[in-house]
Design a protein around this nucleic acid. Sequence first.
DNA 1: ATGATTTGCCTAATTATATTAGGACGGATT
DNA 2: AATCCGTCCTAATATAATTAGGCAAATCAT
Lengths: 191, 191
Amino acid sequence: MARAGGAGERLTLAAAELADEIGFDRLTVSAVARRLGVKDPSLYAHIENARELKARVALLALEELADRAAAALAGRAGRDALVAFADAYRGYAKQHPGRYAASRYELDPQTAAASAGPRHSEMTRAILRGYDLPEPDQTDAVRFLGGAFHGFVSLELSGSFRHTPREADASWAWVLDTLDFALRKHPARTA
Amino acid sequence: MARAGGAGERLTLAAAELADEIGFDRLTVSAVARRLGVKDPSLYAHIENARELKARVALLALEELADRAAAALAGRAGRDALVAFADAYRGYAKQHPGRYAASRYELDPQTAAASAGPRHSEMTRAILRGYDLPEPDQTDAVRFLGGAFHGFVSLELSGSFRHTPREADASWAWVLDTLDFALRKHPARTA
DNA sequence: ATGATTTGCCTAATTATATTAGGACGGATT
DNA sequence: AATCCGTCCTAATATAATTAGGCAAATCAT
């Protein structure tokens, strides 16, 4: 449905920008129409419904995020790869909070499978190659890393860290250091 | 505003149950009114607006979660405490997905400060007593654990793990084991 | 060129939700 | 009995989602 370069793309872009400005949860068809200077119903020539609008932003975010992560990973391995990947992730979330939130929007299975979502776990697996983990530990580690990155970024974005003086950057470095250590030294369990 | 045992409580309960059933993001004043068998405007005698309705559910969730976590922590220390706490957290999320989502709802600073939110970080700090971490590592570790727990649960709930056969329970156990190891063996950096 | 098609919009209208204003009603209080 | 208070209601407005049906400029095919 989304033809590259077409009006559908402009629509998605406008929605993504809007999401970054007002928050993904407040993204509405009306608001996007307003921003584009057209009437609400006009958008239905390009999207099925509000859900698709959100899904489009989600897909865009997943791709952009995957692209950045891939670039960060290029030529790196081990700890370097881990840090670069994680930083790309966190950097994107801070720069595009609305899009980042969108990337967690629940897509229907088919759409999700065709999205850049799988690339994310593949890249995480690629990072783990530098840590020599046997299956199923590797799968557990993929989930661990994905959860740790997302959880930290999510808490930081929601302001959970503002109550304590400690710099989020410093904690982030500590976390990455700890993750690297854990993956490097933790004995495989293969349970 | 919320008087214990009053109608306000029933309202909050109804909203929480509804959130668990249809998802926190779909919680509306209308839906709650419908469930209570009253007209929409009637609810405004009890709440300020839709935002307060959500905030009420968030506060309830934070309290219930803190209570469970506290119970899980009672009499435990070290690894046992870590696992019990984490399981309480994950168990609540699976049992009450709507409430759990509500617990991440952004409250205004004052409300957040008066909520059970602080208890959560205090309890996490309590767990870390068993790991002998100096500040500011302890603060970093609190953020690490909070993020890791939330991130994993969040990904699991959103179905991110369904694509891979590996049991979520097994990965969870691996994660907790790894966290315990990292906190126990990781040299303090105090950076 | 030119009629057919496509594309992108629009107006009108419906439904659901959020919210305000103002009033009715029963029980509790003085 | 006069007054409050808590709870609910009807009426009304604004915003958002969405459908139906129509208009015009751009594009294509012949």
